[in-house]
Computed example of a mutant assay.
Amino acid sequence: MQDDQNRLNPSPRQESILVCVSYGPNSERLIRRGWELANAFQASLTILTVDAQDDNQYSEARETNMSLWESLSKKIQAEFLVAKNRSRNVAKTIAEAAKEKQVTQIVIGQSARSRWEEIAGDSIINGILREIEHVDIHVVAVQREIPLQQEDYEPGVQAYLVKDGEQDILQFDPPAKDAVQGLFFQSIYTDFNNGVFKVTEPGKVTKYQIFDGTVTRKLSETFSP
């Protein structure tokens, strides 16, 4: 009788979420989706990127994205992993990371999948499922990349950075206390408060990365006479 009850009411598994990101404008949306799933399931969260580039090669896009993903991972208390991939078998690399972290759910972007299919010559989904069992795969519909000559941000709007403990929070209404005033440029690739906050002062312009309404890092600081 007890065995029958166990089969009807199996013990819930401990969920673990893996988000796969690649270069492009949609990584923040994928991380946000993984973060929402992790909160809903009270699960651990890992952010993974598959890097086929040699360490002795410099790429500005690579460095910028790596820095952003690492900052966002710290902000949402996720683990950030960089998996080196020399064989170009991306599905196998993702599956190996999923097995190591005992992942139960994988989040991957539709546009990223298409690029990886061109590299691997096969469906990334099918490749992962061949390598690992008992894992749910969420294919998130995201926007395709637009040509680089088009603007990546909405027109700037007046906003404020308000201190909240150790964090700087984005606010649009004039605050009652001291705050930093500037312009917020929202990314066109997201519905959330993600983008760049620009502060112009005499002789200096400072830009901050904003994710989910919070400053994650300083992007640049430019001085002028």
Results as ranks from 00 to 15, higher is better:
152 D>C: 09
67 S>I: 06
69 W>G: 05
92 K>C: 03
114 S>F: 15
146 I>R: 13
37 L>M: 03
130 R>F: 11
101 K>N: 14
222 T>C: 06
43 A>D: 00
141 A>M: 05
188 I>T: 04
111 S>R: 13
34 G>R: 07
134 H>E: 14
196 V>D: 06
10 P>W: 02
86 R>M: 09
225 P>V: 15
184 F>C: 08
201 E>R: 08
75 K>I: 05
134 H>W: 07
8 L>R: 11
191 D>S: 13
107 V>F: 04
195 G>D: 04
45 L>V: 02
36 E>G: 07
91 A>G: 12
68 L>V: 15
205 V>C: 12
91 A>E: 01
100 E>L: 10
93 T>M: 03
144 R>A: 13
202 P>K: 04
112 A>C: 10
223 F>P: 01
211 F>T: 13
12 P>A: 01
191 D>A: 12
11 S>L: 12
185 F>M: 02
148 L>P: 11
102 Q>M: 04
217 R>K: 11
140 V>K: 03
53 Q>T: 11
40 A>F: 14
2 Q>V: 15
135 V>D: 03
137 I>S: 10
219 L>E: 13
201 E>N: 05
149 Q>A: 10
121 G>I: 07
208 Y>G: 00
29 R>F: 10
201 E>K: 06
142 V>F: 03
204 K>C: 03
166 E>Q: 05
134 H>F: 05
183 L>Y: 12
127 G>N: 02
220 S>D: 13
90 V>Y: 11
100 E>Q: 14
152 D>L: 13
